[in-house]
Design a binder for these strands. Structure first.
Lengths: 229, 229
DNA sequence: TCTTGTTAGATTGTCGACAATCTGCTTGTC
DNA sequence: GACAAGCAGATTGTCGACAATCTAACAAGA
């Protein structure tokens, strides 16, 4: 018996593809917060019937990036400053926990993967591909969750990540400057390779606070705009 | 203008009702882990078409209590010992965080609600209604999350709660003894009313460990049964 | 006997049409 | 002009039927 292990083949339902398409559109900000999703229009554009589209939308509602009001419609979630604050403060707590769990699990594969993902971030940064930069940075960040070996924690983080990615994308869209070219993850990666777990946890916390400051500025702008309506 | 605030009227879509029915069936253990949900059979029993049923099932898949394999079917999630351990260890972390956030928010309404929910648990216990006892105990537990004023945290806990409720129900079903009549929440409630936040956090952690021991016994049984297949 | 190909039945995925509900406009009344 | 009633169009919710896929039983061949 050959020891080759195959990866599961791709889901080939329309529903799964629609979910992927919609999620991407939302997380990259192509669909704006609060925007209504017209079922007929979207199903025609995608050349599918409304049934799989609606099922896909139900999934994204549960995923927390769409919201649905019976007989009124399904909308991209609104983003408030408080949402961003809430997501970030929870993220801090989860990060600390994930590092604690992942710490004794670190092995060569972990370090290799860490470098690989770090490299992906740097490459996206050099290419000035902001969307990909956000994606890869979150994937780098997610490594500790994958190594924590706690399925519920991983699932929770993936849900949270969706929102964070959306927030960052909106933030990037709002300010039309290029992204910072410097590498903010160098220290983080080094600490995860080191021997001082507490230091890694502390840095994760502070590192988050850094990006957080930027996002908060954007969030405050949102609040102002909202209050005018 | 009268200051009366109305609660939202009930969702009147079949989909919402189906979700509630199915969730209840799963969380009370009427639908067993691993069991397949036959769409045609269920839709006929409920006298609805498959469309709203399928949408409801997609929601529950995202909610984490169903799992779906394309063209094969949708199944109640399997429960392994590790799942229970994972859920509990995350719950500990979230509890600590929730208490920290809720602590300064405690007001008279909080204390009243605390007593009310505590009373509901005691009543269910006296009535030997195990299902309701689990429900009310989790609702009592959820109060700190509602007062923490962090929407993402609350949402996360509600997802986690679904599973915990399912685990407890399975546990109760497995052992055919009546539930303990003593009140294990007395100290918890008292500490939440007190002034020592750290003590409350510590107790939440230990209190969880208590129930956890019981559940683990059940989980180990599951593992043994699974290994025989 | 084991493997492979075939087929029938059951089940899931998708479609197009109809029913229920909402929204905004128009009309009529005061 | 203000306001309520009612109508028309658009959109969401639901249905029944068909297509795609899987499963299991059976047959054929090595």
């Amino acid at each position: 018996m050959a020891k080759l292990d195959f990866s599961p083949i791709a889901d080939t339902t329309r529903r799964a593809e629609i979910v992927a398409l919609l999620r991407r559109a939302i997380l990259t900000g192509q669909l704006e917060p609060g925007q209504k999703l017209n079922e007929l229009r979207i199903s025609e554009q995608m050349r599918v019937s409304r049934a799989p589209l609606r099922e896909a939308m139900r999934e994204l509602v549960q995923e927390g990036i769409l919201t649905s009001i019976p007989y009124a419609g399904t909308f991209v979630i609104d983003v408030t400053a408080k949402d961003i604050i809430d997501a970030y403060s929870l993220n801090k707590v989860l990060d600390e926990f994930a590092i604690e769990l992942a710490w004794p699990q670190r092995d060569q594969r972990f370090f290799d993967e860490l470098d690989r993902r770090h490299e992906a971030v740097k490459q996206a940064t050099r290419a000035l591909d902001t969307t990909r930069q956000i994606e890869t940075a979150l994937q780098l960040h997610g490594l500790i969750y994958e190594w924590a070996d706690n399925s519920v924690l991983l699932e929770t983080w993936q849900r949270l990540t969706s929102r964070l990615q959306m927030y960052f994308a909106l933030h990037q869209r709002a300010r039309n400057e290029p992204v910072p070219a410097e590498d903010v993850h160098e220290t983080y990666v080094a600490l995860l390779k080191g021997a001082d777990m507490r230091a890694a946890q502390r840095h994760a916390r502070e590192h988050i606070d850094l990006d957080f400051e930027e996002l908060l500025g954007y969030a405050r702008g949102l609040e102002k705009r909202a209050s005018k309506n």
